[in-house]
Each structure stands twice: as structure tokens, then as C-alpha cells.
Design a protein around this nucleic acid. Structure first.
Lengths: 190, 190
DNA sequence: TGTTTTACGATGCGATCGCATTGCAAAACG
DNA sequence: CGTTTTGCAATGCGATCGCATCGTAAAACA
């Protein structure tokens, strides 16, 4: 056999290339050849690690999902209000890392509209996120329908991400809007 | 010459087919052949009315943009609060018409992230919408930063649309969330 | 050391793509 | 009525696509 190679590492490298192609040229520019070129490897190698293009895309999707999950999982703060604010801001293309991930996420989200295989994990993952955000809200402001506020905040951040990616909203304005919304949620007696 | 045909009508028919393909199979399924088949016409006819695929897609984009614009333009109410509520709900895939348009819009939005030619009109159209919504808010609740509330509401509705399309949020919950957000905006002394 | 197995690179195939070209029937026009 | 122009249908072309196949260098294993 040739030198033992870290199988998962190789797959991650290719997955990264998929994300880079998606971020710069869109989902429909993702072909085996483009990905191979972006990764700086041969097309045969890509095929060796992924049986089909769909499998490759699904892997890339899980990869950025995990990456985003790690990033927001790394957020922590003693103050639940600061915690929530940091969490929401982490979902927006503000940091360098998030600016790379957001276009990829947006492309996958759009594809999920017409591809149930992508929509299913998103549907299943959402309630956890809602519950987590709702819990943070409750810590700051007991009473009121925290779950509704949580869902609204997450939808708001989702839309804000899209608008930022399209250039409708600048980073500064986006942060102001998030703070404004958080203020609304926490001030409310509801 | 052959019988005089309504040029614009033919283009609209093809544009409709483009949207139908996008709604059911996504943007990357839009090919000249698929569109022709969907429209029930020959590929030659599609080429006759659109010089390039890009021109066809751009036309389809303007077409649904105009359609959505017409739909929200048709909204009217003496009460600004009802007006705003109806307006926002009209942006969600709730009615039969909107359920057909929303997936198409979502696909174009995602494409706009990597294609400036689509992003430009969206960037330019946004401020008008913000101003209009802000005006409605001011009528109900003078004072406070109405523009910030308007931008937040529009981002919220955008994200909500995506979540509905993916199936994360049902129609009923979506309406509740919109009402909840409107309540927050109008109650606020801010 | 020989065998086997792994990790590819290279190449080819059929399908599909956008687009150009060609041909022609039909109707408006002189 | 003949000419011209329009509205298409048909076909072909080169490029690119996902994927299958084949060959092979090299290292782990016996």
C-alpha cells in the first residue's frame, strides 16, 4: 500500500475546496474538476475519496454545519445577555471566519428549498437552537413567550445574514440592528 | 412575415416556465431545454426570444420582482397597522401565489450573493422598501428609530421566508411570529 | 522478499450544456 | 402576386459534466 494517509484529513481538505468554490462562484460552479483544481489535486483523488458528487456536497454541508456549530459552541459568557448577543453576532458574516462560511451556508440553504436531503437536518437542528436561545432569554427576562422571541430572533439573524451577503446592510448597521432587537426583547414585559 | 405575435407575452410565458423550473428543481436545473420543455415549446423558440441564457434568467428575475412588487403594491388599508401587517404577510409564502414565487425569490437571492448583476437591483430597491415601512411605523408610533425597526422587520421577514421554505416554521407559527414582532414594535416607547 | 493492498493519475464515455447555423413556412407589404 | 421579412424548428458543434475504467507506484504485511 502507499503511505498511510489520514483519510478524514484528505476529505476535509477537499470539503474545504468545495466550500471555497461555493463561496466565490456559487453552488452550480461546484464540479469535480473545479473542486480538484481549487484543492490543487487531481480529479482522480477527489473521486477516490467521494464516490459521487452528491456525497461530496453532503460532506461539505456537514463540514460547515459542524464548523458553524463549533464556532457558536465556543461562545461563552457568564452574563446570559452578553452570551446571546455574542451568539447571534457569531451567526453573521462579521469575523473573517464567518465571512467565509456565510456564503456557503446561504447557498446550501437555498438548495435545501428544493432538496429535502439538505432540508431534513436543518429542520431537525432548528428546535435545539430555538430552545437554547429561549433559555438564554428566560434567564434575562423570565416570563413572556421566550420561545417565540427566540424563533423571531433566529429568523431575524438569518435574514440579516442574507441581506449582508447581498450588500443591502453593512456590518455596522447589522450590529446596531441586533442590539436594537435584543433591547426590544429584554425590555419587553410581554 | 408569420402572424404577428405579442413579443412581450411570449417572453413572459417563457419567463414563467423559468420560474416554474426554479421553484421545483432549483436554479441549476434551469437549462434552455428544460425551460422549453416546461413551457411546452421548442428550444428554438426560447432562443428566438432570448439571445443568451443569462438574459433569460435576468428577465425572469425582473419578472418575479415586478410580480412581487405588484402584489405588495396592491395591498392597501386605511389603518397603517393593518397595512403593515398585510404587507409583511404578503412577503411570506402564505397565499398560493406567494408559495409559487417564494422559492424562486430564494434561489435568486442566493445567486445574488455571488452574482453582482442580481445583487445590484436588490441593493437599490431595498432603501425604498425600508423607507415605506418606516413611514407606516411612524404613523402608528411616532418617535423612536422607525428606520431601524423597518430594517429589522424586513430582515426578519426575509429570514422567516427562508425558514418556511425549508420547513422549519409552519404557516401558522409564521403568522404568530409576525404579529408578535409587530406588537413589539408598536408597544415600544423606544 | 514477494505479495497484496492502497492511493491515486490518466483516460475515456455518454449525456447534457449553451449557442450558432440553417432552412423554411407563413404573413405582411409593395 | 411576388417579394421580403418574421417566427420559429431542426440540427450540429465544441465544451463540460459526472462517472467508470484501467494502469501503476509504493508501502504495509506475510
Amino acid at each position: 500500500m502507499p503511505k498511510q494517509v489520514d483519510h478524514d484529513e484528505r476529505r476535509r481538505q477537499i470539503g474545504d475546496a468545495v466550500c471555497r468554490v461555493m463561496a466565490t462562484r456559487g453552488l452550480d460552479a461546484v464540479s469535480l474538476r473545479h473542486v480538484a483544481a481549487e484543492a490543487g489535486v487531481s480529479m482522480g483523488r477527489v473521486q477516490h475519496y467521494f464516490a459521487t458528487k452528491d456525497e461530496m456536497l453532503l460532506f461539505a454541508f456537514n463540514q460547515i454545519s459542524a464548523r458553524v456549530g463549533d464556532r457558536i459552541g465556543a461562545v461563552h459568557s457568564a452574563d446570559p445577555r452578553t452570551y446571546l448577543r455574542t451568539l447571534l453576532l457569531e451567526l453573521l458574516p462579521l469575523s473573517a471566519a464567518a465571512r467565509l462560511e456565510a456564503p456557503v451556508l446561504a447557498a446550501f440553504l437555498a438548495q435545501a428549498v428544493v432538496e429535502p436531503r439538505l432540508a431534513a437536518p436543518l429542520r431537525e437542528g432548528a428546535p435545539q437552537m430555538v430552545a437554547f436561545v429561549a433559555d438564554l432569554i428566560t434567564q434575562v427576562r423570565p416570563g413572556g413567550d421566550a420561545e417565540q422571541d427566540a424563533m423571531a430572533l433566529l429568523a431575524f439573524v438569518d435574514g440579516l445574514m442574507m441581506q449582508m451577503l447581498i450588500g443591502q446592510v453593512s456590518a455596522e448597521v447589522a450590529v446596531e440592528l441586533v442590539d436594537h432587537q435584543l433591547c426590544r426583547v429584554f425590555v419587553a414585559a410581554s
